[in-house]
Design a binder for these strands. Structure first.
Lengths: 223, 223
DNA sequence: TAGATTGTTAATCGATTAACAATC
DNA sequence: TAGATTGTTAATCGATTAACAATC
């Protein structure tokens, strides 16, 4: 028997997984029991072939001739995403973004629980935002030893962000969601996602501009 | 002469453009004048071939034997991204996320200026966050006629988000950055970017879980 | 059984990388 | 001129789509 080490999923496929999960949650809630790849493809703007390919990369959850059981499929994709359990989050940086994320209502319902905030500002330490208490960064290691978290969200100024990675990893953090405007690096067994909010706005203006240029060109050719 | 309509850039390439821009801004600030694709590749973890390919899709900004002039290249990519001019933003929804984004310091320095906030809550109307005044959503159309914006940022509850698209588009908005937990749709000449914050956390847990499983499998095979 | 639809392999398409002539 | 490095075409790689046998 070969113990095939599963290949790393491509970024393109990974990005589809939460979308599948959302769509299936929606379909389950409106009473769908069975679902064909064709119907799911229609709703999501994908091809049925791609959907079957994606699901099969993780083992195949359907029945020939019948389609997929929506509840089972949703649960299976939840397992793949590892969201059928709770995840604890620490937010480091209790500024605007950090406080907003700690009060964001969409996380808890998906099993993401913000359990602690950290900040350097003595004026913020001891305060609570969204029911989450702010601790001093100087007590971060001690605090995370008492109450470990899976994921750290970094919302500090860019210049102090990299220095946080080492103590966070030492405290057992396995994933970092970084909103500071730098590309953070860390040990290879820790997943780091660098968000770069302004990049997203730049991609928006790029597509806006691209569309505008294409329309001009297209009108010009027609003349 | 053929008037080739430029092809739509792939998502993969588009995502590299802001990263190029950031890297070049950094290199310019530390005094680089010329730069080879090889050196840029090394710094960004890409191949030199891909970099030359990317730049050439937009016309080619280098000189054989010499490399690229950093300042010129940065400016050229800024033109492609359309960020060498100011963009005005309206934020619709003055809740946690909306207020945080209005106070976020990273936008203005890149030419993204939040000029107005809208909210339904009478308790918020008239207040200011980050120097930006909150207006009632019922006055949105009138207000945007007086002070038009390029981009709308939607940070409302999911159930009211879609209804905002039509009036925003009618008021001249060409791009929508949507943080509400729905996929918004609009006319095809408007660019809509649906963020889905929880999707990003799910992708993080997916990679964390994937890594964990791969390590277990790998250890198991070695036994 | 007949019709439907998966799981899976083969074909196609597009993106990345390699190679090298052009030229600074 | 010799060395360096782009611009650009060709080769390769990987992802998407098509096709169809398996089977509910």
């Amino acid at each position: 028997m070969t113990n095939r080490i599963p290949e790393r999923a491509s970024d393109a496929m990974m990005r589809r997984l939460p979308a599948y999960y959302r769509q299936l949650t929606e379909l389950e809630s409106i009473g769908f029991i069975d679902l064909s790849s064709k119907e799911l493809a229609r709703r999501m703007g994908l091809t049925d072939s791609q959907i079957r390919h994606d699901f099969n990369a993780f083992g195949g959850f359907g029945r020939r001739g019948r389609g997929y059981n929506v509840a089972l499929l949703r649960r299976s994709i939840g397992d793949i995403l590892d969201i059928n359990r709770k995840h604890k989050l620490a937010i480091v940086g209790a500024g605007n973004i950090g406080r907003a994320l700690s009060m964001y209502s969409g996380f808890d319902s998906q099993g993401f629980h913000v359990s602690v905030l950290f900040d350097n500002d003595p004026a913020l330490v001891g305060k609570k935002f969204g029911g989450v208490r702010v601790y001093s960064v100087s007590n971060m290691t001690k605090q995370l030893q008492k109450n470990p978290v899976d994921i750290a969200v970094i919302t500090t100024p860019a210049d102090v962000a990299q220095a946080l990675v080492e103590p966070l990893v030492a405290a057992g953090v396995k994933g970092i969601w970084n909103f500071a405007a730098v590309d953070l690096t860390g040990p290879e067994d820790v997943i780091i996602s660098n968000v770069h909010l302004t990049d997203q706005l730049m991609m928006l203006t790029f597509r806006m501009h691209e569309k505008q240029v294409m329309e001009q060109k297209s009108a010009w050719v027609q003349e």
